[in-house]
Each structure stands twice: as C-alpha cells, then as structure tokens.
C-alpha cells in the first residue's frame, strides 16, 4: 500500500519535472539539470509534508 503511494508520487514528480524541463529549456544539459532539481524538490517536499501529517495527525 505504502509502496503504491510512493510510486504514484514518484511517477507524478517525474512527469511534471520532465514537462517543465522541456517547456523552459532548450539545451539537453540544462533540461536534465532542471528536471533533476524539480524532481528532487518535489519528492523531498512531498515526503516532508507526509511526515508532518503523520506526526501531527490524531
């Protein structure tokens, strides 16, 4: 169950990161760097938010 949630989050982050990398960058190197940065922040931010909900939940 938890694995499914994480995989969905990961797939979502990958797709969004790729989309914005292709939308805003022309050079492949810049695209890869942008995608990696967005992906990293999205996964990290989502996990932090999930832990925050877990700790502050009932």
């Amino acid at each position: 169950m938890l694995r499914d949630h994480f995989l969905s989050l990961l797939a979502y982050s990958v797709l969004v990161a790729l989309f914005f990398a292709v939308l805003y960058h022309r050079e492949p190197r810049a695209m890869v760097r942008s995608a990696a940065k967005t992906l990293g922040w999205m996964v990290l931010g989502s996990l932090l938010f999930a832990f925050l909900m877990f700790w502050t939940g009932p």
Binding site: S8, A11, L15, F19, V22
Partner: peptide
C-alpha cells in the same frame, strides 16, 4: 522534438490518471 516530448509526457500523465 518538443512536440514528440510533450505528446509523450501529457499522454503518459493522462494514461496514468485513468489507470489509477
């Protein structure tokens, strides 16, 4: 190139949404 990339990304997002 961009057209192909956008087609793949948006279609994959759509397909994943329906699959989930």
């Amino acid at each position: 190139g961009r057209a192909a990339a956008f087609f793949l990304i948006v279609s994959a997002t759509y397909a994943a949404g329906l699959h989930l």
